[in-house]
Structure formats: structure tokens, C-alpha cells
């Protein structure tokens, strides 16, 4: 018996989210009094042995198959399910990324077991106790997970990666899963570049200036674009703006839009609905520019300027120009 962590990797290189999964898995395994194993699927996986060992993994399972070069969610789940059959782990833990959750949903369907997505806490047991994220992070749920094997994903960036006290030298066990054509029917056949307007990407911008319904129209975004331009930032918007057709959905910040994590988020003419704020929880600071003094009572805004964005933003831009910005 063991706890099994499914690691996302790129030719054996694992990122922050995978190390968080390993730490979370190690804590779960320690509480259950079991060893931590990890599994990597696809080419180059054995290179993950060294970093996995640092987090206390005792055995690294490496699944290789010619069909597993391109991403194929059902095939990955089938491979993990085969390993589950041999290893009988008490839990499989993975990343609550889009892909992690997709693979775990397939695992849940294949094994007919419940799957708890985006957990932030988990305690093992015959019935596991978890706390998981709802509403894109605006609400938490305490839940009990039944079934012999627990399938859990960890909400990204909700658990600190902590290497084990002593690094282990994991045993590497290779296997070639048996995959059918049906398992491989859904796979990435091509990757196309999207034409981002050459500007700063919303997801990685250091400064984001967003407009909401208060911008009034598509043209009403001119002062928002001007300020974002001066600050070398990206322009965002609320859903009220996208459904009005003022801007494209690629600019939408929020639960069903883009998640951002800038140094500062300047939200202009945006009321701060929970679904909007779900997209900017990662921002270090949030400044609201709003005509309604009530925004000061919205917990998520750190700073506010009370006023009409069409007057406040040009004044800020003018001040920045005075300071020498172009």
C-alpha cells in the first residue's frame, strides 16, 4: 500500500505545482503511515526521479507508450488505473490544474469512485476528510470522501512546497500501459499559436488596468488603455463588458475569464462581484476607481479613489507624464 502522486512534467522537469503536489502527498502519506510513490507519464519521465526524491518519494513509476507523446487524457488515466490495480494505493493525488482535473475525472469514471477536485486540506482515513474550493475560490467546502481509493487534486498554490528532511533515492520502475484505440482517440493533434495583439499578456502582466460597466462603452476604454500603456501593463475587463460586446472575452478577468497575479490591479468602474474577484485574488494590491464610495466596504479592495474614471484616469496619466513616463 502507498499514496501515489501523479506528476505533470515536461521531459522529466517538474514545476511548482508538481512540487506542491509532492509535499501535499508526502503529508497525506505520513498521516496514513504509508510510503509516497509517484508516477510520471510520457517521454523523459525518469528524469523526475531526482526532484521527486527530494520530496521523499520512495518509488517513481515511469509509464512509457508511443501513444503518450501528445497529451491524451483518457490514455493517461488508463495508465494510472493500471498502476492502481498493481499498487492498491489508498489515495492518488494530482494537480488541480485544467489537465490534472481532466485526468482525475477520467480516473473517477474508470474506477467509478468519487473525485474531490481542488482540495486545500486532506486527512486520510477510511472516509477521508477534505476541504475543497468552490466558486473559483470564493467559497470552501468541508467534505467526506468515501470509497476504497481516494482521488484528490490539490488547488494550485494552496500548499507550500517543502522538501523532505532527508532526500531519498527513489527506485525507478518502468511500465508500458495497455492502451486501446478508444483511450487514444482524444489526443492533441496540433498546437496553434493565438494572435495576441503583440501586447503584454494579461496572465503575466505586472500591472493590469481593467474597466467594468462604469467605462460606459467600448470608446470609454480609451483612458484605461492610455494608463495601461504608460505603465507597460495589460488591459482587462469585467464580464459586464464582454457580454455588452465592448471587448473580447480574452480580456475578461474572473472565475470564467483569466486569472491574473500582477503587482497591482487597478479596477475602474468595477463593483467587485465575487466572480470577478475570483480572478484577481493573486494580485498583490488592488486599487478601485469608482464613483460609489461603498466600494470602500468591499473587502478585496486595498485602495480606492472615489470618482469618475473618465476624470481620474486622465489625471493619473498626466501626472505620470509629468514624472517623465511615455
Amino acid at each position: 500500500m502507498a499514496v501515489l502522486a501523479l506528476l505533470e512534467h515536461d521531459n522529466g522537469a517538474i514545476g511548482d505545482v508538481a512540487t506542491q503536489v509532492l509535499s501535499f502527498g508526502a503529508a497525506y502519506a505520513a498521516a496514513a503511515g504509508l510510503p509516497l510513490h509517484a508516477v510520471v507519464i510520457g517521454p523523459g519521465g525518469e528524469a523526475a526521479a531526482e526532484p521527486a526524491g527530494r520530496f521523499g518519494v520512495t518509488t517513481l513509476h515511469v509509464a512509457e507508450h508511443e501513444g503518450l507523446v501528445a497529451y491524451a487524457p483518457q490514455a493517461i488515466a488508463r495508465g494510472v488505473a493500471e498502476l492502481i490495480g498493481r499498487l492498491s494505493p489508498v489515495a492518488v493525488i494530482g494537480a488541480g490544474s485544467e489537465r490534472g482535473n481532466e485526468v482525475f475525472a477520467h480516473l473517477g469514471a474508470i474506477t467509478d469512485l468519487p473525485f474531490a477536485a481542488n482540495c486545500i486540506e486532506a486527512a486520510p482515513g477510511e472516509v477521508a476528510q477534505v476541504t475543497r474550493v468552490r466558486w473559483g475560490g470564493s467559497l470552501l467546502e468541508e467534505a467526506r470522501v468515501h470509497g476504497a481509493l481516494k482521488l484528490l487534486t490539490l488547488a494550485p498554490h494552496s500548499f507550500e512546497a517543502r522538501p523532505a528532511a532527508a532526500a531519498a533515492q527513489p527506485a525507478v520502475e518502468r511500465f508500458t500501459p495497455v492502451l486501446s484505440d478508444v483511450d487514444l482517440a482524444v489526443r492533441v493533434v496540433e498546437r496553434v499559436q493565438t494572435q495576441t495583439g503583440g501586447g503584454v499578456s494579461l496572465a503575466s502582466a505586472k500591472v493590469v488596468v481593467s474597466g467594468g460597466r462604469g467605462a460606459g462603452s467600448a470608446e470609454g476604454f480609451a483612458p484605461i488603455e492610455e494608463l495601461a500603456g504608460l505603465l507597460g501593463g495589460a488591459v482587462g475587463c469585467s464580464r459586464a463588458v464582454t457580454i455588452a460586446g465592448w471587448r473580447s472575452h480574452t480580456d475578461q478577468v474572473g472565475q470564467t475569464g483569466t486569472k491574473i497575479a500582477p503587482e497591482i490591479y487597478i479596477a475602474c468602474g468595477i463593483s467587485g462581484a465575487t466572480q470577478h474577484m475570483a480572478g484577481c485574488k493573486g494580485a498583490k494590491r488592488i486599487l478601485a476607481v469608482n464613483t460609489d464610495p461603498e466600494v470602500a466596504n468591499t473587502a478585496d479592495f486595498d485602495y480606492a479613489v472615489i470618482g469618475d474614471l473618465h476624470q481620474v484616469l486622465p489625471a493619473i496619466s498626466a501626472e505620470l507624464r509629468k514624472a517623465g513616463l511615455k
Binding site: L287, D302, A304, I306, D308
Partner: peptide, 18 residues
């Protein structure tokens, strides 16, 4: 929430924060 000011007069306080 810290109120940086009201209307266009708040601009210098915003620039100072930036």
C-alpha cells in the same frame, strides 16, 4: 480599504503608491 482621495486630485497619491 485605504481611500487615496476623491476625483482627479487623487492623482499624485496614486502615482506615489505606484
Amino acid at each position: 480599504t485605504e481611500i487615496l482621495g476623491h476625483g482627479p486630485e487623487a492623482a499624485p497619491a496614486v502615482v506615489e503608491l505606484l
